[in-house]
Amino acid sequence: MNSKNPVIVAKNLTKKYGNLTAVDGISFEIHEGECFGFLGPNGAGKTTTIRMIHCVSPITSGTVTVLGKPSHIDNREIKLITGVIPQEINLDPDLTVYENLMIFAKFFDIPHIESKKRVNELIDFVELESKRNSKIDELSTGMKRRLLVARALLNNPKLIIADEPTTGLDPQARHLIWERLRSLKSRGTTLLLTTQYMEEAEQLCDRLMVMHQGRILKEGSPRQLISDEIGREVVEIRIAKEEDEKLIAQMADLACGHERVGDTLYFYCRDGHELMKKIVDFNLPNVLNRPATLEDVFLKLTGRSLIE
């Protein structure tokens, strides 16, 4: 599925705001036609990284190229072939849905007749026909996000950058956005996605990297990351901390990883079956055996404590 043509190549990409290092010398490659995810808590540097890629934030040091062209603040060529779905809803509140798209098409030098056709198609694509002449503040959050998707597609982009595109949406609206993004991917568009939702990353991404404090912690496919970091299954046991030592010693021969967080002891296993059998013997209450998820990887890598 993935031809290995690199669309984005970053080398030692760094961004500093005064003394604060927001992105700390990261290197990665994103290939043509894949969906690549940046996963990380708030302040991990995801948005800063994508802002450098699509030429709206100056690079402190290192390089990043898009289809061989170096990103820098004045590179209109990269902006011309990139569609951006921003995290913050920045639609034009003085204009209607239709006008928003028509004006934006102008910014990309799309001729008027062509714009009309494309705008109509895109309004269909994101199911906003009935809101065509509505002002932006008459739209629900889900509709606004859909309009942002349509706006990002006006220039038939080769690369789509979606920065937390489903923040604040109800499940229906979220699934609609996912479905639209998948359909773009199936047409061969390269997709770069940042998200804090593990389900979103699992639904959409071929590969992803987990970022934390401006660095890349791990990179790989969702499945590979889960199996490398966690195993296949997780057993959660809610017991008092004092019991840990005894319990862990009992399980030593099963080769499971373990971690204590708050009121819960986690075991990460290839096969949870043997562990469960033993646990049944102990007759413990509050035990949960479940498949490992990306969320476990995320929390293990970025820590389970709150990040402000």
Binding site: V56, R76, K79, V84, I89, L91, F104, F107, F108, R151
Partner: peptide
């Protein structure tokens, strides 16, 4: 308030 310039500069408009 409108963040209009953020959306503008993400296009070929400098």
């Amino acid at each position: 308030y409108q963040k209009l310039f953020d959306s503008l500069i993400a296009t070929p408009v400098s």
